[in-house]
Design a protein around this nucleic acid. Structure first.
Length: 304
DNA sequence: CACTCGTGGTG
DNA sequence: TCACCAAGAGT
């Protein structure tokens, strides 16, 4: 498995499903060996992986995913866990509301779906924390259903390969159509195509410095054929982090995760100097259900 | 539609 | 160094 290994590119001028077929062939030799891609991975394990992978790198997800599946092998098992347990087990993956939503999803699966993960996109999209991308990823990778699966990698690949643009356009409905146009006809290959496009975007057609020399469809890439023009769109605003509420919330949660029991407000003061911002962030954590306040005024991760 | 919501590696 | 980036969802 070496994505830098030379692969025979498809002939120039290839379009549509021929490109998809080429990506499936490339994937067979270049794919990473990720645990949730093993054939015996059930839809629940796939769902957990997809939620964890939202905006979070693979390397950070892998160990946590293993722990979660060992501990909560079924939706029923996770549904029985407390928010505090789930938040602690989430560790430092970031965006900890995902952990709460995953637990809420587990409850919903037990209550509405007999403890199983549905295979229909609308039912999946109705679950907390499951949106357009995750619903189709679970249907496709978890249930073997042919579905257009569009994430940021896929949008970038399509932007370059099909539209000749340097960067992905904002998510739009036409993304599903663009991807469908590349999809192989054979259902089994169509499913592998969905993961293959993502993998190409993750390993070769990357955002910063694309490795076009290793790309199996480089001779048919509209962006390359146009001379790899720079992005013409407006510069995307940088998501600042230092000093934001996100950082403060993270600090506060850090304290509570490490604490064996409830802590007084004073124990949270070292987390952030600005008292007003600290208070505002603590409030928002309470609203989100990531923190709970006891009648005596102390704070802890929610027990129930 | 624009904005928020964590974290840590990296060129 | 520090801006950029990593399998989005919810409001």
């Amino acid at each position: 498995m070496d994505s830098t290994a030379p692969s025979p590119p498809v002939p120039p001028g290839s379009t549509g499903p021929a490109l998809g077929e080429a990506l499936v062939d490339w994937y067979a030799g270049a794919a990473r060996d990720l645990p949730w891609r093993r054939p015996d991975t059930d839809p629940w394990a796939v769902l957990v992986s997809e939620v964890m992978l939202q905006q979070t790198p693979v390397v950070r997800v892998e160990p946590v995913w293993r722990e979660w599946l060992a501990r909560w092998a079924t939706p029923a098992a996770l549904a029985a866990a407390s928010p505090a347990e789930v938040i602690r087990a989430w560790g430092k993956l970031g965006y900890p509301r995902r952990a709460l939503r995953l637990r809420e999803t587990a409850v919903a699966l037990v209550e509405r779906h007999g403890g199983r993960v549905p295979d229909e996109v609308p039912a999946l999209e109705a679950l907390p924390g499951v949106g357009t991308y995750t619903a189709r990823a679970v249907a496709c990778f978890g249930h073997g259903q042919v579905q257009p699966v569009v994430d940021t990698n896929v949008r970038r690949v399509v932007a370059r390969l099909v539209h000749g643009r340097a960067e992905a356009l904002p998510a739009r409905a036409a993304d599903l159509t663009d991807v469908a146009a590349l999809t192989p006809a054979d259902p089994d290959r169509a499913v592998r195509f969905s993961v293959a496009v993502m993998e190409l975007g993750a390993l070769v057609c990357v955002a910063r410095t694309p490795r076009c020399g290793a790309c199996p469809v480089r001779l048919s890439c509209a962006w390359r054929l146009a001379g790899s023009p720079a992005s013409d769109g407006p510069p995307k605003r940088v998501q600042r982090f230092a000093g934001t509420d996100r950082q403060v919330r993270g600090r506060l949660l850090d304290v509570l995760r490490a604490a064996p029991g409830p802590v007084p407000a004073a124990a949270l003061e070292p987390a952030w100097d600005d008292a007003a911002q600290r208070s505002r962030c603590l409030d928002s954590l309470l609203v989100d259900g990531l923190v709970e306040q006891l009648p005596d005024g102390r704070f802890r991760l929610p027990a129930g």
